[in-house]
Structures are given as C-alpha cells and as structure tokens.
Design a protein around this nucleic acid. Structure first.
Lengths: 139, 139
DNA sequence: CTAGTTGCAAATCATTTGCACTTGC
DNA sequence: GCAAGTGCAAATGATTTGCAACTAG
C-alpha cells in the first residue's frame, strides 16, 4: 500500500483520487511553500481535474489531521507544506519572498519556558523571521 | 500640543480628526488587540463617525509610520495595537482567545543569530505562542 | 447502498479602491 | 486654494459553502 494511502487511512479519511493527488503534489514539492492558488495551477498543469473548493477542503482536512501545515506569512494568503516528522520554523526574504526553514532547540525550549512562566501550557507556536536573503543583500 | 498630535506630525501625517480619534482609541485600549471590525464598533459606540475604509487606511498608514502594529493571529483577521517603545511578542489562548504579551531577550538574540547563520540580515519577526491559559486549563 | 466527496457557482469575510466631497495647513 | 483626507458604495482576493451528482467502502 502506498505511503500516502496509509497516511490517509491512519487519519481516518477516505482514500480518494483528489486527496491522493493533492498529497502527492505536496510531497513532490517539499520546501516550496505554495499557496492554494499556486497548488491549483500546478494541478491543472499536471492535467488533474481538481476544483479549487476541493483543494481548500482537502488542505483543511489534512491540516486538522496533521498531514499538512498551513503557514500564514505577511501579506494575506496562506501557504501549505506537507507535515514533516520534525518541526521547523521559517525565514522569509522581504525582497524576493524566498523561504528557508530552520530549527533551533534553544528557542524552542525557551518558548516552552516563557509560556509556562505565563501560566500557559504551550500547544503550538508560529515563528517567522523576516529579512534580506544573501542574494538580495547585494542589490 | 497633545502627544498624539506630535506623533502624527513627526510621522509626516496631517493631523486630522479621524487619525486623532483612532490613535486615541488605540491608546486607551493598550493590551486589547482589537480587530478593525472591533475598533470600528468601538468608534461607533463612542459616537464617532468614522468610515471603515478610513479606519483601514489610517491603520495602514500608521503602521507604515511605525505608530501602530498589525498582528496576524490564526484565523484570518488582523488585530492592531498602538506601537510601544519596547518590542514584545504574544501568547494566545486557543480556547478563549485571551492575549498576553511577553518579551524574552534570550529568544530575540538567538533569532538574530539564526538569521545571520542563514545569511539573512533580520529586519523583523513575528512570534506567537498558542496554548491554554491558566483560566482555561481547569475546564 | 449510502455516508462521505467532489465540482461548480454563488456566498462570505476581511480589506481595498474609485470617486465626489470636505478639510488641514 | 489645493493637495491630502474622508465616506460611501462597489470592487477585490482569498477562502467557504450550498447543492446536486458521484464514488469509496
């Protein structure tokens, strides 16, 4: 059984063509951070006949099931990525929009501490750094 | 001259009634983190006649001038707060929506390091922790 | 068979914009 | 006086929803 099929079953979601196609697309685009609109165009280019409504529905369901992560960078629209085993955060170039991933245990640990000190039990966090990427710093 | 008047002048913005009212409202609601829609309702309750379009325009201009900060928590709409001298980040309760502010130099310093290691010159960041607040943990 | 899924078009929500009118300097 | 600011209504862009047709289990 394909890995994606298993992921869907484990999440309690029916294994449908649309869901398979969408997860395959996300898997083959790791690191891309595409918006719904961009994913939709990619599907069309691949010749797949998936409605944008279905795309949004599947992304939302998969997000709730933990198969997909939704990221909200500055500037309105959300971008999506396939969920990885390991958590990471993002650095976005304010000039060209390039996105890099990073993971830092010092920050992660400190976040849990800060939350605990405030009396919160931390469940999640979002952290995005903005700056000029190496390529854009020279311009 | 009123403090707010000075802020506007220093920012190179004309001192208009709408701008004064909006900044006054934000100042008298420090820590509230209200959305544009909520601010609009508050203005109406105060009997002020400010259009929602103006509200958005003023918020955007003041954000660009550094007088106001726009925060994007999960769930679509942005919330606004008057800019403070000192930077801070936020912890949001996933149950009741309560927002607390915090500042942690360990994290801030580490963020700059992480960005530098990736070759970026960090200009800004957004960090929001999500969890259950003390009040909601008992439920 | 039938509850869950999908595609389409229409709806919704937050935010932005065009335009004629008003106001700060 | 005039460029900048404002209110209103209409436009926009991203995302969601109603509904009738379709499909996985």
């Amino acid at each position: 059984m394909k890995r994606i099929t298993k992921k869907l079953k484990d999440a309690g979601l029916k294994v449908t063509a649309a869901r398979m196609k969408i997860l395959e697309l996300l898997e083959s685009n790791r690191g891309t951070h595409a918006s719904a609109e961009e994913l939709y165009r990619m599907m069309l280019e691949r010749g797949e006949d998936i409605g944008i409504a279905t795309l949004y529905r599947v992304l939302t369901q998969c997000e709730q099931a933990g198969l997909v992560e939704r990221l909200q960078f500055e500037g309105g629209r959300a971008v999506f990525e396939i969920a990885e085993e390991s958590h990471h955060d993002h650095i976005v170039c304010v000039r060209c929009g390039q996105v890099q991933e990073f993971h830092d245990e010092v920050i992660e640990a400190r976040q849990r501490e800060v939350a605990r000190d405030a009396g919160f039990e931390m469940e999640d966090h979002s952290m995005v750094l903005y700056g000029l990427c190496p390529g854009c710093r020279g311009d």
